[in-house]
Structures are given as C-alpha cells and as structure tokens.
Amino acid sequence: MTDTKVNNMSKESFRRQKSREEMQKQLISFGLMIVLTLVAFAVVAMDTFHKGFVIPFLFLMAIVQAGFQFYYFMHLKERGTGMAALLIYGGVWAAFLTLAGLIVISWW
C-alpha cells in the first residue's frame, strides 16, 4: 500500500519536473521567436541591406519560425508523432509544388 503510494508520489514529482522543464523550453523558444521576429523586422526597417540579401534572409527566418512553431508549440518533437510529421511534410510539399508551379510557370 505504502509502496505504491511512494511510487505514485515519485511519479508525480517526476511528472512535475518534466513539465517544469517543458515550460522552460516553451518560454525560451517563445522568447527566441520574438527576437527572430524583431531581427527580421529590423533587417527590413534599417533599409541598409541589399534586396538580394533581405529576401532570402526573410525566407530563412520564416522556415526557422515555422520549425519552432511545429516542434515546440505544436509538440511535433514528442514521440509518436511520426505520422503527423509525415502528413505535415506532405502538405508542405503539395503547397510548395503549387506555389512553385504558379511562380515558375505563370509569373516568371
């Protein structure tokens, strides 16, 4: 009886520790995302960089931010999310093809 109680207690404290660490990571990534947004904004606002640098840089920032979004806020880094990841990347691929098709064929 007491054994299971102790067991439950340690499980509970382990879970708490886990979620505390999790919250820490969430906050760090949230802070990072704000910083990245500010950086992206600054690069455009400063008006000192060449267009050829700004546009690819913004794309890079966008990809990093999307990664944070998926992996930290939508928990794609957890175990057992393989199928969800596969479907998300499938969707990204379909969307990429659509945009590439329109950009390369129609507007270029």
Partner: peptide, 12 residues
C-alpha cells in the same frame, strides 16, 4: 488579372 491561374489551381 490572369486566367491561367484559374486553370493551374483547378488542375492542381
């Protein structure tokens, strides 16, 4: 506007 966009989106 561009009507070919409609065709692309439709066939995608």
């Amino acid at each position: 506007g561009n009507q070919v966009i409609y065709q692309h989106l439709f066939w995608i």
